[in-house]
């Protein structure tokens, strides 16, 4: 595979991205700009995550890639193959055996461990963007810690729906400083961000931003005193493994309203089935 440099990107680019990553880890939750490269896939397919993964990988790594929790969807399979070809690293679907996990929209059910790196694909890194379109202004708001606006969004939710209706990309406060978009993970996964033993890296390719949470960083989901954060999940049971605590996908089975729930984390589910749970 000598046609490619290790992990596709040239060494200069990886060095540039690593510098951004180091800065991001040093300032948890702060969005570090980086010179995002063209990747052999369209924006929105994880170009940010792929560049971060490429800059993080070493030949000894074992990579897992998931899309909405699943190892077997097109996006996950393609990215896994991409790194098999360009980096020649070992891949796995088992969360606890992976050293690097690239993910779109989920955090594995299996608790992350010290030494692991999880890379999130991020479409829009700026949590204030939908309320304040000016980048100059949002940067200022971050630097001055003016986050009242974030609560305006939650206020609007309650006023309109009677509860905080934001169910994914639920904003969090990192320590006592930056407010951060956790990428479009379900709010069910938000508690896993808090005090995680793994290094958490976030890459937004189109928006050219990298941010990070070093291990053990306190992360709090925003809420109101009288409307506390609630990491709810569908009230149901996985039809395959019977789990009542995992995050479930709803699957429509026929045209007459038949449906069932399945774990969105395929690795977790398969292993429970195997263990005869």
């Amino acid at each position: 595979m000598s046609a490619y440099n290790f992990a596709y990107l040239d060494e200069q680019t990886k060095r540039m991205i690593r510098r951004a990553l180091l800065k991001a880890v040093a300032i948890p939750g702060y969005q570090v700009p980086f010179a995002s490269r063209e990747m052999p896939m369209p924006y929105g397919w994880g170009t940010g995550g792929v560049q971060v993964t490429a800059s993080t990988l070493v030949p000894e790594d074992r990579l897992k890639v998931i899309d909405q929790g699943a190892d077997d969807t097109t996006n996950a399979v393609s990215i896994r193959r991409f790194f098999e070809v360009t980096a020649g690293v070992e891949t796995t679907t088992e969360a606890d055996r992976a050293t690097v996990i690239q993910t779109r929209h989920r955090i594995p059910e299996t608790p992350l461990q010290e030494g692991q790196i999880i890379v999130y694909q991020v479409p829009i890194p700026e949590p204030l963007r939908f309320l304040e379109p000016r980048e100059t202004e949002t940067r200022k708001m971050h630097s001055l810690g003016e986050y009242g606006l974030m609560h305006v969004k939650l206020y609007e939710d309650i006023a309109r729906h009677g509860e905080i209706a934001t169910t994914y990309a639920y904003p969090v406060r990192v320590g006592k400083s930056y407010v951060m978009d956790p990428s479009p993970i379900p709010k069910f996964d938000n508690p896993k961000l808090n005090g995680s033993p793994a290094i958490q890296l976030f890459g937004a390719g189109r928006e050219q931003r990298i941010y990070a949470l070093p291990p053990w960083t306190p992360v709090k989901s925003l809420d109101f005193e009288d409307y506390p954060f609630d990491p709810s999940r569908a009230a149901g049971q996985c039809a395959l493994c019977g789990s009542t605590s995992s995050y479930l996908d709803e699957v429509i089975t026929d045209d007459s309203g038949g449906r069932m729930f399945l774990c969105s984390d395929t690795d977790y589910c398969a292993r429970r089935v195997q263990e005869g749970a």
Binding site: G148, Y155, D223
Partner: peptide, 9 residues
Amino acid sequence: LMGVGARHY
């Protein structure tokens, strides 16, 4: 109000 720290809906 939220800008000056009000957190009670």
